[in-house]
Design a binder for these strands. Sequence first.
DNA 1: AATTGTAAGCGCTTACAATT
DNA 2: AATTGTAAGCGCTTACAATT
Lengths: 338, 338
Amino acid sequence: MTLADVAAHAGVSRATASLVLRESPLVAEQTRQRVLASVEALGYVYNRGAASLRMRRTNTIGLVISGLANPFFADLTEGVEEELRPAGYVVLLANTFDDPAHQDMLIRSMMEHQIDGLLIVAAVDSDAGFVTPLRNNGVPHVMTTRRIRGVHASYVGPDDDAGARLATQHLLDHGARELAYFGGPEHGVARIDRVAAMAALLAENGLEPEPSWTVPSRVSSSEGYAMARKLLEHGPPPEAVICHSDAIAFGLMRALRDVGVEIGTGCRVIGYDDVEHAQAWSPSLTSVSVAARTMGRRAARMLMERIEAPGSSPEESLVLRPSLVVRESCGCRPSSAH
Amino acid sequence: MTLADVAAHAGVSRATASLVLRESPLVAEQTRQRVLASVEALGYVYNRGAASLRMRRTNTIGLVISGLANPFFADLTEGVEEELRPAGYVVLLANTFDDPAHQDMLIRSMMEHQIDGLLIVAAVDSDAGFVTPLRNNGVPHVMTTRRIRGVHASYVGPDDDAGARLATQHLLDHGARELAYFGGPEHGVARIDRVAAMAALLAENGLEPEPSWTVPSRVSSSEGYAMARKLLEHGPPPEAVICHSDAIAFGLMRALRDVGVEIGTGCRVIGYDDVEHAQAWSPSLTSVSVAARTMGRRAARMLMERIEAPGSSPEESLVLRPSLVVRESCGCRPSSAH
DNA sequence: AATTGTAAGCGCTTACAATT
DNA sequence: AATTGTAAGCGCTTACAATT
């Protein structure tokens, strides 16, 4: 069942049939109707692969994510799709599980599928070389969420400096003097930037981050829990802690509960990402919100622009300002929790 | 940069070059090395689209998900990928946002991309006709997680009857007499099956579900919260409630807290899905676990088998038995919370 | 002038023939 | 007998020619 069958059924040439499918104005209304009727009658399904080969464009974009199970990335993925679908693109999704070697494989596989462009949340410990094949083959690409040291490519991500300052300032306003930045991948640029921003703001106030609690971790609630329990064996928590993610904050809060520290007074907690459940937790979690879905949309839009304007377009960087969603865990008592 | 270039560089024909890429044993080791060296030297990237057209097989499978932001489906997606990737498949992902019309579009789009098979978590209110185009065009497909009334297709999903009984029995063992099934899409088969199973088991004990709390809802913590708050205005909660999802349970627990009901004593709560944060919540959430990742793997495997054995294979149905992960919210006090 | 058809080609694979 | 090459074709699109 190919276009040739449709053409035969409608009594026109394959060329004409193709023109009506592509909605060309060159074909007479009568003929158009006839062809469309044949498509319907035969239940013809367009072969986009064949068309892509001929047109040298697949209308497919690759999305490489470091960990889909993280709701932050799931949201981002939804944003990407929302933006790309209406524009006629289809997304090829792949998960690296934060493994750089796997990531290299996936990028290669996507290139073999002739993607028109690539969106990537790079694995935390990516080697800077992962973009080389993309650049060499002129595949438009944009990185999002995570910056990798040494990689120069277009980028859409959160302003980590601003985010960390927002949280730090709020805690200082609460009168806290001992602050820590808890968790996050050790060499991740995000963690490094946020810790630096926090330290800078603290320094302006004659303070410095609590070293024993300013430690890296993997990003999950169970990791946050385990690490917090260990630290709590050696003494009480600092007055306030900013967590690298909401998941880590959930783990930390559970650990604090276990040892009888009251959250918001005994220890002020702020999370990062403003995940859906932050609101339902008790106490509800104050969190730095970076609007994952919006970020996905912006990144997708930037990629499309780069695909349209090939070669010429200079590398660009879009940084989104986060906001602080204030709830209870920092010690505030909002009039209504919801 | 095509295979022809590689062949020219290596001084062989395109046919030979193709044979070495496809790892045919027909070509001499020397020639093989020469071609591989040329591939390397030229930085050649295989065009899988062209090969697919010729071979009439794309090694691509479609995955249509009703809502990726739900961590349950994100896990499932990871399971699917884990299984499919090593087998040489690439997954085309699409999100329906539970919209049947959008779902129909996506399925069509995937068929145009010549997917070798389709895995689908159907939108809750899917029309039974959504499989027709797949069947008509002989596209192997398997449904997972959700069963749609009137649709006959291969399926991998949880045993909702067993899951609901597990939770109900546990609550009965705690001495609870007033039980409710809280939330979930009104016409969803899962909710209907679970409520029926619960009612059956209760009937054996001379009881019936608490009607005022056995109500449908959308699946999110904020919906669970809102609905619970509304019900709590009219009186105290039942002795025990099984929630349609962990997210709903989180919302419910928050609402109970707000009005001063102690969870586990004033009201026993059991969730469904055993999401990661169930463990970190306080109290930690007892939940019916259906192992989303495993389900994804099984569904992927079934699909691959159906692709290998075309036509012949009869429709099949694989049902996975869930387990009850007992924590604190039901009133148990496990020796260690983690 | 408006509409439709011819023919080549996108980058591969593979049956079969040809060469050593 | 072992290895390599020839040529056709997968299902489309599109420049250009041909027809009315």
